[in-house]
Every structure is written in structure tokens, then in C-alpha cells.
């Protein structure tokens, strides 16, 4: 089966978008750093379940998201902690706190697993949002392949910024030597770097849905885009404002 062929699309979809969506789906179907392929696809399914979860709606309306108890709309064998993490990231991300993240290991979800889970959720969610925004059906999730997680944790990860350990802005060595595009970093790049593969996933999607990191230096207009940079940033800023994102 060919994913993301967009043959039924009434609009022309750029080839780089097709490719990056397809490539991510292929990576989604493989074992990651901390989750098996089947678990990664279950995380993807939960990110879809969160969009129609009544408990998420109820909790989002509550004064505090940490006092209400209930059951999420769920259809996977993931642990309750993992399901809750997926649903919070999709539906109520502004109220995630450091204390909650730090409590995850006590509930059998390691910080490394949380970072990879978040990486899967945000990539699947953004692909789904692209489909929803154009009125398309969501793509079928892929079948999982065999294999075990690599359990790779970069040695240079350090705490001190944000809720999770991250790689430093400077001095990366070994497999991460060239992780920062163009050698420059920022906290948004560092955010998922405890799982370098998760960072590479979002960078690849970003280059097609928005701009590559190198392309972001062009403040006027990228030749293969139909909207100029100001128009892009207007959309970006309005989406961020509605999501109440300070960053």
C-alpha cells in the first residue's frame, strides 16, 4: 500500500510534503529508541483518540487538570500513564508542569520514553492536522514491523533547561556531532534531543510543512512556496496565540 499518495486530493500537494509524510509513516512503523513499533503505532492511535475524548474536554474546562479523575477515550493496550500523557499533549498541553513530568517515572513511564512519546504524538498530530485542515480523511496507520527499541540515550544530555534533559547548544560530539542544522541550536531544537531520532523526525516534517531550519534565514519568500514569509508567520503566530504558547 502506498501511503499519502493524495490521488483524490482536489488540490495540488507538493511532492516534498508527500515524501516527508510517507517517510515519517515508515519510521513510525519501526521500533524506536524506547518503544516497539506496535507501541509507537498505539501512541499514534491514542493521539487520534484524544481529539474526541470527552474526559479531555471535561478536564480542559476544569480549573486544575490535576484534580479531576476519569477515563480517557482509549483503544490501545498502552499503560494508563502513557495514555494520559498522549491525551494531555494533544488536548491540554499548556498546563503540563515540571512536577507532572517528573512524576512520570514513579508511574512506570521513563523520561526518555516520555520524550519519544511526545515526539510521536506531535508528528502524527501535525500530519493529521494537515489532513483535517484540507478536509481529507486521516491516513490509515501503518502495520508495525518487528524489532526491539535501541534504548539509545545520548551521553551529553544534561538537565537544567525545561522539564527534561536535553543536549547542550554547543560542543556536540559522536553521533550527535551534526545534529544541530547549520551548527546552530535553540531551545525548540533542543526540546526533544534526549531522543535524537525524535528531533530528526520533526525537522524533516518541518522542512516540508513549513521551512527547513536553513530556509528560516530567508525572511522574504522561499521560491517553492506560494505564500511569503510574512504570510507564513501570520499563520504561525495566530495558531500559536490560540494555543496560548508563550514560546
Amino acid at each position: 500500500m502506498t501511503f499519502f499518495d493524495y490521488n483524490d486530493s482536489p488540490y495540488p500537494i507538493r511532492e516534498d510534503i508527500k515524501k516527508e509524510h510517507r517517510d515519517f509513516w515508515q519510521r513510525l512503523a519501526q521500533a524506536g529508541s524506547w518503544w516497539t513499533a506496535a507501541e509507537r503505532i498505539a501512541i499514534a492511535q491514542e493521539s487520534r483518540n484524544a481529539s474526541s475524548c470527552e474526559f479531555c474536554e471535561e478536564r480542559k474546562a476544569a480549573l486544575s487538570p490535576y484534580t479531576l479523575e476519569g477515563n480517557h477515550h482509549s483503544s490501545t493496550p498502552l499503560s494508563a500513564t502513557a495514555i494520559d500523557a498522549v491525551h494531555r499533549i494533544v488536548a491540554d498541553q499548556t498546563r503540563i508542569t515540571q512536577a507532572w513530568v517528573e512524576s512520570l517515572p514513579d508511574n512506570d513511564l521513563s523520561i526518555e520514553s516520555y520524550v519519544e512519546l511526545a515526539g510521536i504524538v506531535v508528528c502524527v498530530f501535525s500530519i493529521d492536522e494537515f489532513h483535517r485542515s484540507l478536509g481529507f480523511e486521516l491516513e490509515l496507520l501503518p502495520d508495525p514491523t518487528a524489532g526491539e527499541p535501541s534504548r539509545y540515550r545520548p551521553a551529553q544530555a544534561e538537565s537544567g533547561t525545561g522539564f527534561v534533559p536535553m543536549l547542550p547548544k554547543e560542543g556536540l560530539t559522536g553521533p550527535e556531532e551534526n545534529l544541530w542544522p547549520g551548527g546552530r541550536s535553540a531551545n525548540v531544537l533542543r526540546a526533544l534531543s534526549l531522543v535524537p531520532a525524535a528531533l530528526r523526525d520533526w525537522l524533516a516534517l518541518c522542512s516540508a510543512q513549513y521551512l527547513s531550519v536553513e530556509g528560516m534565514a530567508n525572511m522574504v519568500k522561499q521560491d517553492d512556496r506560494s505564500i511569503n514569509r510574512m504570510q507564513m508567520e501570520l499563520i504561525a503566530a495566530r495558531v500559536s496565540a490560540i494555543n496560548e504558547c508563550f514560546y
Binding site: V90, V122, F125, G162, F163, L192, S240, C245
Partner: peptide, 10 residues
């Protein structure tokens, strides 16, 4: 996606 990366990682 980006807003959720920023907020979930703090």
C-alpha cells in the same frame, strides 16, 4: 506541532 513540543518539554 511546535506549540506542543514547546509546552510538553517546558
Amino acid at each position: 506541532r511546535m506549540v506542543r513540543i514547546a509546552d510538553s518539554m517546558g
